[in-house]
Design a protein around this nucleic acid. Structure first.
Lengths: 130, 130
DNA sequence: CGGGATCCAAAAGGATACTG
DNA sequence: CAGTATCCTTTTGGATCCCG
């Protein structure tokens, strides 16, 4: 995420050579995927997201939304009313991302128990002999 | 990653309800994807990975490999020779992950310039008025 | 060769309080 | 309603040295 007034981050340089890092940055971070998925379902408001995400803090919601907006994945529309109203919409860019992410999620769902089993086995084998 | 002798991490509890977090953990982290992709190409040795990944430290290579092994994505085979020889192979689980990851990478490649443009536009608009 | 152990810097994220 | 700002904790990751 690394917000702020970044001074030509070291990563940015490496990014050119390695597009993989780019994906990871946009998909990693605790909340990015969930928000992309949520916004892809249709237009949402800030509070709506805050409620649907569960566990997310105001701060992280804001930061993550800003990051996604910056990358051109979502559009933020402010209605200058009182109280304020802000809507978030997915861009085509984000919608193209939906399928790959869903494929990933499908993999996770299919293999959840296999992974859990692998973990148990590993942890059992590498047990700290107390 | 969160190695060690975890004491029923708070995340583990949430994981049950939210499989999304599971994917993210396995895909996030600076090196996971690159290593999964690399190992999916065929059996590799530690030093081979170290050279092909570029920028990775011994420590992170080890930690990431351990994490992937624990999740049942790779198999680690130690040949008790002198000097030692250790091979890493992708499991079927990991190979099933290859396509979704490639889809993601393809998206990144297709839209790299669009994202860069979005960033430039965003940064230009939200410039700090010095 | 393939690590482990230790220490340290940076980044991510949470809690809380305040605001137009 | 939709944020900011500030502070603080946790996680990540890199550097370095050691070892069978």
């Amino acid at each position: 995420m690394s917000q702020g007034h970044m001074a030509v981050s070291q990563q940015a340089i490496h990014d050119v050579a390695c597009p993989i890092r780019g994906i990871i940055d946009r998909v990693s971070g605790k909340w990015n995927v969930q928000i992309i998925l949520a916004v892809s379902q249709g237009t949402v408001r800030f509070t709506g997201l805050e409620r649907s995400i569960e566990g997310i803090s105001r701060r992280m919601l804001t930061l993550t939304l800003r990051g996604l907006e910056r990358d051109g994945l979502i559009i933020r529309t402010v209605y200058p009313t009182v109280p304020p109203k802000v809507e978030y919409t997915a861009t085509d860019l984000a919608r193209e991302l939906y399928e790959p992410l869903e494929a990933l999620a499908a993999w996770a769902r299919r293999n959840r128990s296999a992974i859990a089993a692998a973990r148990d086995a590993y942890d059992h084998e590498h047990r700290v002999i107390a």
